[in-house]
């Protein structure tokens, strides 16, 4: 059976294990809350995690990676970029998938045909991790940009008076 078909067959199990593995990195009380509350507005972090891992799973199994998936990946990394974790922890969740897939396919993976495919799948997971790292850095930089932009907005009239901003509407 082709690797992608095998993965699709085990999709629900893999996603559940991946989600649980991510929750393990949170405090136990928070993990419970993330697991139990399904309303996307009452529990936005849980929704971000779910949508992101589903998107990545689609991407690596050759399914259509939609704009929505891309947005959910962005959202996940936005969240990781402001949470109280190190850069390596922020992207670590991608690597969990490798371990889980290896474990789930341990009986099938050692057939010669599948083994090579599994290696390239793992490379794809590595690439996704790098993409996540780029997004993480982008959002960290955004935080500093927000700080400087906010100062400019707060002193908008001062900047106008000192000709650092267009002084009148005609000049704008």
């Amino acid at each position: 059976m082709a690797l992608n078909n095998l993965l699709k067959e085990k999709e629900a199990v893999i996603l559940k294990r991946w989600f649980d593995a991510i929750l393990e990195t949170y405090a136990p009380e928070t993990a419970n809350q993330l697991r139990q509350v399904h309303d996307p507005f009452a529990n936005p972090a849980s929704q971000s995690i779910r949508q992101c891992i589903e998107g990545i799973f689609r991407k690596i199994t050759g399914q259509i990676f939609t704009e929505k998936d891309s947005l959910s990946l962005e959202n996940m990394l936005k969240l990781r970029a402001i949470q109280d974790i190190t850069p390596s922890q922020a992207v670590s969740f991608v690597f969990f998938l490798k371990m889980i897939i290896r474990d789930e396919l341990k009986n099938e993976a050692y057939s010669a045909a599948l083994y090579n495919k599994l290696l390239s799948l793992e490379s794809e997971i590595d690439e996704t991790a790098l993409l996540c790292f780029d997004l993480y850095v982008k959002h960290r930089q955004k935080i500093y940009e927000l700080k400087s932009e906010e100062i400019k907005r707060a002193a908008f009239m001062l900047l106008r008076k000192s000709n650092q901003q267009p002084c009148s509407m005609e000049e704008r």
Binding site: Y26, A27, E29, T30, Q33, L34, V37, A42, N43, P44, A45, I82, Q83, D84
Partner: peptide, 16 residues
């Protein structure tokens, strides 16, 4: 517990 925006955003139980 899960009604606080800081808890939902930080995941820190002491923000419940």
């Amino acid at each position: 517990a899960d009604k606080c925006h800081f808890y939902l955003g930080t995941g820190d139980p002491k923000n419940m």
